[in-house]
Each structure stands twice: as structure tokens, then as C-alpha cells.
Amino acid sequence: MRVGGLRRDWGRRLVLAVPYLWLLVFFLAPLLIVGKISFSESRIGIPPYEPLLDWAEEGFAIIRATLQNYVLLFQDDLYVEAYVQSLTIAGISTLLCLLIGYPMALGIARAPEKSRGPLLLLVIVPFWTSFLIRVYSWMTILRDEGVLNHALMGLGLIDEPLVILNTDWAVYIGIVYSYLPFMVLPLYATLEKLDPTLLEAAADLGAKPIRAFWSVTLPLSLPGIVAGSLLVFVPAVGEYVIPNLLGGGDTQMLGKALWDVFAQTRDWPSAAALAVAMLVALVIPIALFQRIQTRMEEEGER
């Protein structure tokens, strides 16, 4: 610390305290409350849960915690099914996203330097326009009498309309479409930094482009693959809008189940338990993402 002494110290503390307090009150505290209420008994009333701590007449504190919400969660096939389906759908969508996103990121990274910026911008632009309305657009494309089926039947490729809307396929398409920019950006960031002389060296040593890709490009872009996959996978597990609009009656995902329990059954403790169960599945991916993110940021700050 240089000049300024006390005064500077107070300024420093203020700069730190304001965002820190905001995050503690409006982000950490809410998550802790979710944890707390997941152990409360449900009741009919406002709010629809029993207090965890009660004061008895003699001044004793009575703790009324219950594991029942979690037990019910595991006993109800609907939730177990939603849990499994959410992870499966998110996993498959992430893989598809990687398959479409990787060539795009590679292509942009290998494009002439002048056109990289515009190409990258074209990937980001859709993200700035309404997500909800773009998903709605897929409803009109994928319907039985929608644009896609009309085109395919007009070309004579199929005789009967393909049923895509309200199936898991529509959900995959919706998730891949909505999250593709999140996959391409971190991939591009690692691929762009890749030293081209490494590939030249591989070629000089007689490696075919395919071989050079598998043994040089792919391993070196691993941080981008992991970061991009997590940016798609984690939010996709809790996705609510896409399964709602594009999925069918048998597409059960945790996000939808959570909202239904919360809004229709008004069983807040069960909704909270569902949120905690979802977080348990996601805590490792989230921590992994934070480690990669921090490492990337700190490399930039050096």
C-alpha cells in the first residue's frame, strides 16, 4: 500500500463490501433458505411451510426438521424418472452441441484474421434476440404441418409428415439451438490460441491432417471442450421453457417438475427438496466450471 493511508483503506473496504454484501444477501442467503425449507413440513397456508424452529412456552426451542420431502422424492417414480431424463437429455444435447459447435469454432479460428470477428459476431447475434421467440419459431417449423415437413414432402423425401414436435427430438433441437453460442465461444477461445507451428511440425513429420487433429488440436482444446460442455450441460439440466414448448407429455424434466410442484401443488418444501437434489447432481460440474473459469481469468490477468 502506498499513499493515502486510512482514507484509501476505507474506500477499498467500501468497494469490496457493496458487491460482497449484495451477493451474500441476494444469492447465498436464498440458496441457504432453499436448503432450510427442504427440511420443513409442508402445510396449507401462507407461507405453505412450517417454521423449522418453534419456541415452546417454557422457552425451549423445538426443531421440527423432517426428511420426508426427500423420502417422498425417491419414492415417487415421476421424480426419479424426471431426474434420470433431465441428466440424459442434457447429456445428449451437450454431445450434439459439441459435434456441431466444434467444426464451427475450428473453422472460425482457421479463417483469415479479418473475417474471424464478423464470423464470431454472427454466432453471438442470435443470443441477443429473444430466446423465447426463437424457441417458438421452432414450434412452427417442427409441427406436423410445419415448414420442415412441407419442405421434405415437397422434395419427395418423405410421404408422411415426421412427428418431431412434442418428442424428445424437438427438445434436443431446441437445447442445441439455444446453447450453441455458449459452446462455440470457449472452444474458439482455446483454438485461436493454438500455436499453428505445432500443426506444421506434425505435418513435416508426416502426420496426415486427420492424425494431426486427433493428436494435436483435440487434446490442446480440451479446456475449451470442458468449459463449453459445462456451460451447456448445467443449465440444460434445469431447462424449463424448452421442454415445456417443444417437449411432449412424456418428456419429464426437473425444471418443469419443480415449477409444477411449486405453482400447482403449492408444496414448497418438496419444490425446495427437488432444487437441492438438482444441485447435488450439479455441484461437481459447477465447481469444475468455476476452476476452469478462474484459471482462464487468472491467465488473462497475469
Binding site: F27, L31, V34, L230, L231, V234, P235, V237, G238, E239, Y240, L254, G255, L258, W259, A275, M278, L279, L282, P285, I286, F289, Q290, Q293
Partner: peptide, 9 residues
């Protein structure tokens, strides 16, 4: 954390 936290949570 809010960058990746599912919106329903």
C-alpha cells in the same frame, strides 16, 4: 455461480 445455475433454482 449464477452464470451456470439453473434458472428454476
Amino acid at each position: 455461480a449464477p452464470l451456470v445455475m439453473p434458472e428454476v433454482i
